[in-house]
Design a binder for these strands. Structure first.
Lengths: 128, 128
DNA sequence: GTCCCTGCAAAAGTTTTGCATTGCG
DNA sequence: CGCAATGCAAAACTTTTGCAGGGAC
């Protein structure tokens, strides 16, 4: 856990990601940060996101979108459900049984250290 | 399951994806198809991949790579392990317990219809 | 003074779209 | 003939990189 400078720009990015509940993309984060810090550049946001991910402060998600990553302000292990109709993503706090990771190790020969589960379905709004 | 024309180009794309064991990206697929069909264009490959995915013949994966999807010639439900050191991806055939999807539904209010698990770890080669 | 950070602009990489042409049915 | 599929080129997007200026320590 090394140190890094929490500059105003980085703090603004972290703030936006933490406050977000919709798992925004980098460019969405850029737009939100610009409401308070209009002069911030694209590169700064990308570099801040990489840094925050590397330090475990936030998580990077690659959900079903082609060509863009999304970010999650909750660094604790948790899973996601995605609505196939409207694209909404919600958090789910569940843990897989030990046996799942063990089975994966046995089947692949890998040493498994973590996992991500993405459920797909239809959200309450879209079902209605 | 509607019909569509299996043109030589689409067949070549399907063939390459089925034969691949490395979950290639669209551009990697393009290059491989071009070894047998040099005149095929980028757009044709992208359109063929979309079509094949829509018909359930292949699967589209969004693994840890920023800005590029990967494709899997195995349409049956299965999971993946990704090596955090070399990027290699292997298939894993396991099923989650019913309780997992039920828990996700209860926690989110979604109607869950499927799931994808991505394990992360280190492969045998990289461990050595 | 040095080094890290920023903003801008250009470049790179991936995917999509428009359009004229081709060729199956 | 009509319509779907193709190839090419341009456009659209997202992300990365180079670089000059500025601020923190």
């Amino acid at each position: 856990v090394s140190l890094f400078r929490l500059t105003p720009q980085r703090e603004a990015v972290l703030d936006v990601v933490r406050r977000a509940t919709d798992h925004p993309t980098a460019l969405q984060i850029l737009n939100r940060v610009r409401q308070g810090t209009p002069s911030i550049g694209v590169a700064t946001v990308y570099r801040a996101l990489d840094l925050l991910v590397a330090h475990g402060a936030i998580k990077e998600l690659t959900l079903g979108d082609r060509g863009s990553a999304r970010y999650d302000g909750n660094p604790k292990p948790h899973q996601h459900v995605r609505c196939t109709r409207c694209g909404r993503v919600a958090d789910v706090s569940i843990e897989l049984p030990r046996a799942a990771a063990s089975a994966a190790e046995a089947a692949s020969g890998f040493t498994v250290t973590s996992y991500d589960v993405q459920f797909s379905g239809v959200c309450a709004e879209c079902t209605r």
